[in-house]
Amino acid sequence: MAAQVSGKPAESAREAVPVATVQTESARWSGDLVPTLVVVALLVLAIQVGSAFLPPYVMPQPLIILQATWEVLTADPIHIGITGLRLAAAVLFSMLVGVLLGIIMGVFPRLRPYLRSLVIIDTGIPALSWMLLAIFWFRDPEVRIFFILSVILIPFYALNVFDGIRALPREWVDMLESFRPRRWQVLRYLIAPHIVPYILTTTKAVIGYAIRMAIFAELVASAIGIGSRMSLAQSTFRIDKVLAWTLLLVILNLALQAAIASIDKALLKWRPEAAVR
């Protein structure tokens, strides 16, 4: 093996690469905060103005909505937890199955056309059809909601991961294959780390959609959860509660996006973010 030689970083000064304009994830988040607050303030103002001209059952005052928000937070926290758990279980399961399908499509060319056709057919089936079918097929509301969310979310992960594997540079594959790796080593050292950004991007893209679908599924298929509470609020003419739940859902979406951004930052610290001037 090599003798210990005291070296110095070669050509570090002469060859130093100028660092491009780089914007970190945290800088972008803090940069987004002020515009977000401005938009929120404008929305509150619009509701306040609207409530002055419209009856309270159409547009309640922002203060009433805030009171209703406090009420649902203190009286119905269990429903938030249940929706959150349903969402987490379905997203994690869809991620797992979708990533596996994407890898199989990317690595086994013979199975690819069949799986791809299956996934594409799935994407063509409307969410409402899945909801109605779930009501016919399953008695347990938990199974219904889990099924609806999974069949809707799996194709996003499968197709994006498959695209990620297709985008794997041939040069990297040749480099690793020059060491004669076993198949699982190609997966471990090349494919798995390469698809991480694709999984994170997919999660960021689908999380808002997944929340909407979860609420919708709860509305038609369950007696507990935020969706069912919103249905109850609607049937008892409590528009303040409908808006309160909506506000909480927006906050939930923002919190989840921030959580994914943190995971993104931790896992993709190797990736510089170049900003266009």
């Binding site: 090599a2 030689v5 005291s6 110095k8 970083p9 070669a10 570090s12």
Partner: peptide, 14 residues
């Protein structure tokens, strides 16, 4: 071993 070889190709500290 990798660090030893990085030293050998004059990349100590990098």
């Amino acid at each position: 071993v990798a660090r030893t070889w990085l030293d050998r190709v004059k990349l100590t500290g990098a």
